[in-house]
Design a protein around this nucleic acid. Structure first.
Lengths: 337, 337
DNA sequence: ACGGCATTTTGTAGCGCTACAATTTTTGCG
DNA sequence: CGCAAAAATTGTAGCGCTACAAAATGCCGT
């Protein structure tokens, strides 16, 4: 067994063809559509392939066929785990159609998302998914069907848009707290488009019931630290508050820190809802009530939209919102319970 | 601004050459080594490139030059966030040398790691990093320099191996607890190679001081649930226990759940150490003392090793362990404090 | 102005594969 | 058994780029 022997040129279809006693074209056919080749030759070719350890060159295939059977996925930040669900959802659909997903390496820096997309396009992906803040210039002239996932605003009319209904999710959180009887309700508002929608949906639903939410940290970020600081502000300025809705689970964790620091208990004194239904929320220790984005469903629809447009370039772009789901756990209860 | 117009063929160097009034070869030269071209032509070419929106075809470049300037990274599970640090470390080195990292899509299933590696190899990556359980057959005949990162056992002699010193990290945790004065110490043992080394290092250091660790959950997994169950077992069978070392932060979170359920306090009744120094450990709410793997340093060394072997195929494989660091936070204290 | 040398530019020949038309072989059936 | 139609196989051309040798241009001193 030889490891890493760069000396020996890797085998090509010509080597396989010679070994199997057929023409290179036939080898290519076996690779693409084995059913169209006679049993005898097919087996001979397949034997030769494994004997030689032949692997098709993706570059050559791409160049010759101008199809890559691959979809590029640009991610904002690998630490935001929602992309894992998105990816799983996409794969559930794409694998059946022989497509492969390529993740773009989003290195830090100014134009990193643009660069990541460019890198993917240079590799001739057949479709592109932007799971990050899109800019119009980025979506212009990509040359392939492009879908924006998870970001709702600033998407030009020509691109597909499939994302989570953050307004709806915010409304669900509001309904849950109202249903439990809360009336003095705070919100830890993250930054960015999704957070704005969560806030809007939340506030809208509360106002329908005549309740005005107490908003903290509108200008801040989305980190645990931001959640901690905003929660501190809320608790100190509104000591009679009985419930808090955080724009994400991480901020909810920060809120837990602030609540604990003041000697208050969850959910006895304060009910808390997060957003994302992350592993954090599912934790047995935290038992956080949270809104689940159903990003897996987003992934499924993203893949379907892409396939439809790849297969038929006449298909127009679509926009779709996926309905989230409220997962009730141990951090919400009736006020004063 | 036209979005997604598959009708218009994407421009090639020939289009650029015609537009700039030069030969295709000159365009290619500008792309590779702008310094070797006269200012006048270089600018003409660069103008033409941006006017036409030209993007080089990676497939063609690869095919013609048989270099891709890219490194493949196979990841075990995207949810294990240590790869993010690994990636950042690798990029810190590779970006300067014009290399790009490609993440392999590790879809679930039997041979997913193998398949991911094959996919990367089909794309002609110049080097391969396996951040997952390696099998000898997988490392055989990859044809490119290959480094195993983060997995220590079962790596054939021909491959590079750069990983975290889990034995040393276990020893650090032990020393810390001994130094605080603990003597009845438990361990939540995860499954897998890294966990075995953490356990061995931990036990070894304790035994040097004549302390025998109480091991829980040796056969279990590495999830929060596993941590919870093992911690329950430890607390119930050894009520006099004063400290616990968990094989990872997630299990430590499970342990927190078990400790809380028994009405015990951290660190007053029980000191707790995790492993990985994940965001969980850094959380202000949890303040978990944890061992940091320094995976960023692993990434740096992985990249260096790869570059050395790519540039000079005579360089032999190396093995290296990166020293972890103990991060002391709020979950450890003197016993009975 | 001109050889001689360095610098800049260009033509030619593939890289490994696929598309597709052309060719050969097999099959069905009168 | 022969012949048309179907199935299987092959040859040819080219995808977009780079390597490298060959050609063209610029620059120097005398």
């Amino acid at each position: 067994m030889t490891l890493n022997s760069p000396k020996t040129r890797r085998p090509t279809i010509y080597d396989v063809a010679k070994q199997a006693g057929v023409s290179p074209s036939l080898v290519s056919l076996v690779l693409q559509n084995p059913a169209r080749v006679s049993d005898k030759r097919r087996e001979a070719v397949q034997t030769a392939i494994s004997d030689l350890g032949y692997r098709p060159s993706r570059a050559a295939t791409t160049l010759a066929s101008s199809r890559t059977k691959s979809i590029g996925l640009v991610i904002d930040d690998y630490r935001n785990l929602w992309f894992v669900d998105l990816l799983r959802g996409m794969e559930a659909v794409l694998t059946d159609h022989g497509y492969q997903v390529m993740l773009a390496d989003s290195r830090p820096g100014e134009n990193r998302i643009r660069e990541a997309a460019d890198g993917l396009l240079a590799m001739h992906v057949d479709g592109l998914v932007i799971a990050a803040e899109p800019s119009a210039s980025m979506l212009a002239g990509t040359g392939v069907p492009t879908v924006v996932a998870g970001w709702r605003d600033g998407v030009p009319a020509g691109a597909d848009l499939i994302t989570n209904d953050d307004d709806g999710g915010g409304g669900m959180a509001a309904s849950h707290l109202l249903g439990l009887g809360h009336t003095r309700i705070g919100h830890l508002s993250g930054s960015g488009g999704a957070a704005a929608h969560r806030r809007a949906g939340f506030r809208g639903r509360l106002q329908e019931s005549g309740v005005e939410p107490l908003i903290g940290g509108e200008a801040g970020g989305t980190s645990e630290e931001d959640g901690y600081n905003s929660a501190c502000w809320l608790l100190d300025h509104h000591p009679d508050i009985t419930a808090i809705f955080a724009a994400n689970d991480t901020m909810a964790l920060g809120a837990l820190g602030a609540i604990k620091a003041r000697g208050l208990a969850v959910p006895a004194d304060i009910s808390l809802i997060g957003y994302d239904n992350s592993t954090l929320a599912k934790s047995r220790y935290l038992e956080l009530t949270s809104v689940d984005n159903r990003s897996d469903l987003v992934g499924v629809d993203v893949a379907k939209a892409l396939l439809a447009r790849i297969q038929d370039s006449a298909v127009g772009p679509q926009r779709k919102l996926i309905e989230p789901a409220l997962i009730v756990r141990g951090t919400t209860a009736r006020p004063g319970f």
